[in-house]
């Protein structure tokens, strides 16, 4: 049928180098991959891991804002653990992290309500619900500063008028109230994040599931338990874990509302980091506190880690 052309004649048209290069590129698209990964790699190295390691290095120093750092070994760590405010700050952090639970509560109510077919004007309510999250935290912080002001704030005024309070609470100087104020203000500000994730999970539930449940006579609570909850559980969990971490580092508002005070009563670990860095210019100590913050986050996340890992590997495999 066909003569096979002699090999030597053909090979001279295709140089071996090109052959090798293209062969590899097809298998791995090597150059494109390297080029495209460079920015991401640079980010991971220069903006995350190097600063992180640098921070650990700094925590072994007495490191002023300007001037020469001095090696002090574990002194910063010893100082912090033995400091009078150590347990105060840990307690504050614990209460502060409760805000994730409050956020979940509001987000669930809002998402479930807005996901009902019969609710009109959904777009408008959606826009309003996102307002606290959309605005800069310092803005919402300023708003609550005014509303909660013991002397001229609207909230105090009405609480007294309704007889719930007998006299204004000077929360900024009250250790217990200060903690609850910052926790609640942060909850009020950041719940729409969970709301967005839960709502889109709700919207992805096929209508036929509800119809089926209804045919089998499931009541409202049973429908929630057997259809809604299993479908949004994964999304809720993912959002919850992310928020635990993200809330603990939302310090714009605590810093603005109480400045970490009175004393150290509202100095959650992240606020304390910022206080040391920004107010005292003690960078070594600031990062030492940061290390404790990481440890704290990890301890909080242990119960969820196993489940989170499953979620992530699933997400990884999709790619």
């Amino acid at each position: 049928m066909i003569d096979t052309k002699p090999r030597t004649r053909e090979t001279q048209f295709v140089s071996t180098r090109e052959v090798g290069l293209w062969g590899r590129m097809l298998q791995g698209d090597r150059w494109l991959i390297i080029l495209f990964l460079l920015p991401t790699l640079a980010f991971l190295i220069f903006l995350l891991w190097l600063p992180f390691l640098q921070g650990i290095w700094m925590s072994f120093h007495n490191w002023p804002f300007i001037g020469k750092p001095k090696w002090v070994g574990l002194q910063n760590y010893r100082d912090f653990v033995t400091a009078s405010y150590f347990w105060t700050t840990i307690r504050a952090t614990l209460i502060y992290s409760l805000s994730t639970v409050f956020q979940l509560g509001i987000a669930l109510i809002a998402a479930l309500a807005l996901n009902q077919k019969f609710i009109p004007l959904k777009g408008i309510w959606w826009g309003i619900m996102l307002m606290p999250y959309a605005m800069p935290p310092v803005v919402t912080g300023a708003i609550w500063m005014y509303l909660l002001d013991p002397n001229l704030g609207m909230v105090t005024h009405y609480l007294i008028k309704l007889g719930i309070l007998s006299e204004p609470i000077y929360w900024a100087s009250d250790p217990t109230w200060a903690k609850w104020v910052i926790t609640l203000v942060v909850s009020w500000t950041f719940w729409p994040f969970m709301f967005l994730i839960i709502l889109s999970a709700l919207q992805s539930i096929p209508e036929s599931y509800y119809e089926l449940a209804e045919v089998y006579g499931a009541n409202l609570w049973q429908r929630f338990r057997t259809v809604t909850w299993p479908h949004i559980r994964g999304a809720v969990l993912a959002a919850f874990i992310i928020r635990i971490v993200w809330n603990l580092e939302k310090i714009d508002q605590p810093f603005q509302l109480t400045g970490g005070g009175p004393g150290y009563e509202t100095s959650v670990l992240s606020v304390l980091t910022y206080r040391f860095a920004f107010l005292s210019g003690d960078f070594g100590m600031a990062f030492t506190v940061g290390i404790f913050l990481i440890a704290f986050m990890m301890i909080l996340m242990i119960p969820f880690l196993r489940r989170f890992q499953i979620l992530i590997t699933q997400a990884g495999k999709r790619g």
């Binding site: 053909e10 048209f13 062969g23």
Partner: peptide, 18 residues
Amino acid sequence: SPDNDDAIWIKGRNVTRL
């Protein structure tokens, strides 16, 4: 990309690595 270098020919032209 085939393992061997002269597997694919189109109109008498070796295109295996093109």
